[in-house]
Nucleic acid binder design. Structure first.
Lengths: 105, 105
DNA sequence: ACTTACAGTTAGATATGACTTACGGAGTTG
DNA sequence: CAACTCCGTAAGTCATATCTAACTGTAAGT
């Protein structure tokens, strides 16, 4: 059930952009917001959502807060995904077979 | 970039419920909507979004349309996820190391 | 042909969510 | 302690998405 917040969090393009910026390593808020289309407070709000989803974690460092990608949220997504992956392939295979069978008749 | 629509599609709880109902195999719309909190037209709208995201595919069967999970959309999500997975673990490891290092001092 | 079953579409109301501006708090430096 | 930096929060506005209700279209049965 916890994968729900993760999907919701990563649905917004701006929020995905925030998350993806952490792909190159931990960063303070100001550096994340640098050059983005939205204001810094907006980035803070997005980080709050990402944190609630377990996608990022933070720790203070002087007057700044350093944000890092958290495996926890990604793990939830990955587990959910795996539940459907094999099944999706199986469905696809059966579908394709039924189609070629039909073409033959 | 195509993983964006997939995330957006799976963000809505109702839409995820629709998608997950296809986990037990292909189904017509009426059967998907059976016992759900929303109306059948709502389910149709959700299926439309899921189809646009490449998460489901459909084919007519008499007066009914059978929907099936499509691996395509899941593939996009999986690829995106893998780009961050290893990195997240590495960041987490470094973070944990820095923490224990700090505790020792 | 008429009726019934099943599903997609449209229009409109409502709700949810993202953004900016302004402010407050916590830490650091002089 | 005063000024400065960095960041989170609150209030308010605006846009977008979801829902229901009514309608249309299509296929099958009588």
């Amino acid at each position: 059930m916890t994968y729900g917040v993760a999907f919701t969090a990563l649905a917004d393009p701006t929020r995905r952009a925030v998350f993806e910026r952490l792909g190159s390593g931990p960063k303070p808020v100001a550096e994340i917001a640098r050059g983005m289309a939205v204001s810094r407070p907006a980035v803070s709000q997005h980080l709050k959502v990402l944190k609630a989803a377990g996608l990022v974690s933070d720790h203070p460092e002087g007057t700044r807060r350093i944000y890092t990608i958290d495996p926890q949220g990604l793990r939830a997504l990955r587990d959910w995904l795996d539940r459907f992956w094999d099944e999706a392939l199986e469905n696809f295979r059966v579908e394709a077979e039924a189609k070629t069978e039909k073409d033959r008749s």
